[in-house]
Design a protein around this nucleic acid. Structure first.
Length: 428
RNA sequence: GGAGGAGUGGCCGAGUGGUUGAAGGCGGCGGUCUUGAAAACCGUUAGGCCCGCAAGGGUCUCGGGGGUUCGAAUCCCUCCUCCUCCGCCA
């Protein structure tokens, strides 16, 4: 959310932002609403000042035994009037807030202006696509042959867009999550958090998931709880409505969680395999930083996520999103895309964003510099990485002609085996 | 799930309808003193919003929301959180 005063004073900035993001903002409506609201506040406060003065006078008169009945009667009328004003103002406040909550963040000047995905910019590539002496199979075929993935069972238990892993497949999921967490905590300096998998309205509003994206989440009926769509929500809200000690910054935390997404509007997209699920695991990276260092920290965050792909030996590239593709709360985003042989292309596996003070303002997360006034921190988040999609990438990139899957070196201690055996040897 | 108790400023802690945005203490900041420091002493020490070029003025905030009243930290309702006891349970 943007600061109301800043928004009012820089409408031209927001007009440009809307154009660059390809959205519409009713700025004229805002102007009228804002003007009316301020006029009413001024009028109401004038009456309140009058009432406060009169109340003192009443107290004085009563103390000295004088009559105050006339004044009291008059103030009764004034109070009625104030009540009318306050009710009207509350309505306008709510409308202002609702409007402001739907205004996305301003892109950083370094973000390329674009119309859509096609205008994203490739920043760098790492590694090379593996060469196969046979036609590589998609991960669901490899997984079914090796009997480590049972999608029909998941459909029976829960429905479409759920997955069920078996044996070494289940262990691979667990191995990946552990490898991610160990790397980030032991080598990259993040503190591990294991948060609730559900979050309330206030938390989801803080990150920007509510009110605008309610349809993308699973709401727990009859409660104020939603299944978390990403641990970004929980990690951001670790410090909601708190002032962080300046010396503690930057704070780096990471969390493994399940994530739940309704994927409304994604019908027909990624229907085969496990690329797009209602439930998936993810290790999330999150930073609270001082404003002046947040962009340096973003570069480091991307490197932390990339390091995982590199240690797994997976070919990937880094993409900078253009203005039109930028997420609601983000001022600048890099996506990491991993090579998937079956598609002969790249697939998103991580998204790393600097939200600047956008979330911090919504969530009330401040820090107090030495001798200065408290200010909002900057928040950054990134996947490090999506576990299910990494599972896909490992299975596809390390598949062998006989159907076995070689384990990358770094996973072997976690897996206890060098390769997931070929189908013939994989009898259940 | 049942029965009680509690939520005041950065922290502790007064305050039960009328100059209380809130005593006092601690902490923080500035100063006096000191070669320096400590101690002592003096002063200072929330934020949001509205009007205003500014200086400044006004208003709101004592867990959240609502109500009673001319006036609420103080009375009433409701919700949330924490604590104690009982029950249940992985």
């Amino acid at each position: 959310m943007h600061d109301l005063n800043f928004f009012r004073d820089h409408l031209e900035l927001f007009e440009q932002m809307a154009r660059h993001r390809g959205i519409t903002l009713d700025l004229e409506g805002f102007r009228a609403l804002d003007r009316e609201r301020r006029e009413l506040i001024t009028a109401a406060e004038r009456l309140k000042a009058e009432r406060n003065k009169a109340s003192e006078e009443i107290a004085r008169r009563k103390k000295s035994g004088q009559d105050a009945a006339g004044l009291i009667a008059e103030m009764k009328r004034v109070s009625e009037e104030i009540k009318q004003y306050d009710e009207h103002i509350a309505q306008l406040d709510e409308r202002t807030r609702e409007f402001l909550l739907t205004v996305p963040n301003l892109p950083h000047p370094s973000v390329p202006v674009g119309q859509g995905e096609q205008d994203n910019v490739e920043v760098r590539r790492w590694g090379a696509a593996p060469k196969f002496s046979f036609t590589p199979r998609p991960h669901w075929e490899v997984g079914e042959r090796a009997r480590i993935l049972d999608l029909p069972a998941a459909v029976k238990i829960a429905g479409a867009r759920f997955a069920l892993y078996v044996g070494a497949g289940a262990r691979l999921e667990r191995a990946l999550a552990n490898f991610f967490l160990d790397t980030h905590t032991q080598q990259h300096g993040y503190t591990e958090i294991l948060p609730p998998f559900a979050a309330n309205r206030a938390s989801l509003t803080g990150t920007g998931h509510l009110p605008k994206f309610a349809a993308d989440m699973f709401h727990l009926e009859g409660t104020d709880l939603w299944l978390t769509p990403t641990a970004e929500v929980q990690l951001n809200n670790l410090y909601r409505d708190e002032t962080i000690d300046a010396d503690a910054l930057p704070i780096k935390v990471c969390a493994w969680t399940a994530c739940f997404r309704s994927e409304a509007g994604a019908a027909g997209k990624d229907t085969r395999g496990i690329a797009r699920q209602h439930q998936f695991q993810k290790v999330e990276l999150f930073k609270f930083t001082r404003p002046e260092s947040s962009y340096d920290e973003l570069e480091l965050l991307v490197r932390d996520a990339e390091a995982i792909l590199q240690r797994l030996g997976l070919h990937h590239r880094v993409i900078q999103l253009c203005t039109a593709d930028l997420g609601f709360a983000s001022a600048k985003t890099y996506d990491l895309e991993v090579w998937l042989p079956s598609t002969n292309g790249f697939k998103e596996i991580s998204s790393c964003s600097n939200c600047e003070a956008f979330q911090a303002r919504r969530s009330g997360i401040r820090y107090k510099p030495k001798g200065g006034k408290s200010e909002f921190v900057h928040t950054l988040n990134g996947s490090g990485l999506a576990v299910g999609r990494t599972w896909m990438a490992v299975v596809e990139n390390y598949q062998q002609e006989d159907g076995s899957i070689v384990m990358p070196e770094v996973l072997r201690p976690y897996m206890g085996i060098d390769r997931i055996p070929a189908p013939a040897a994989a009898k259940a």
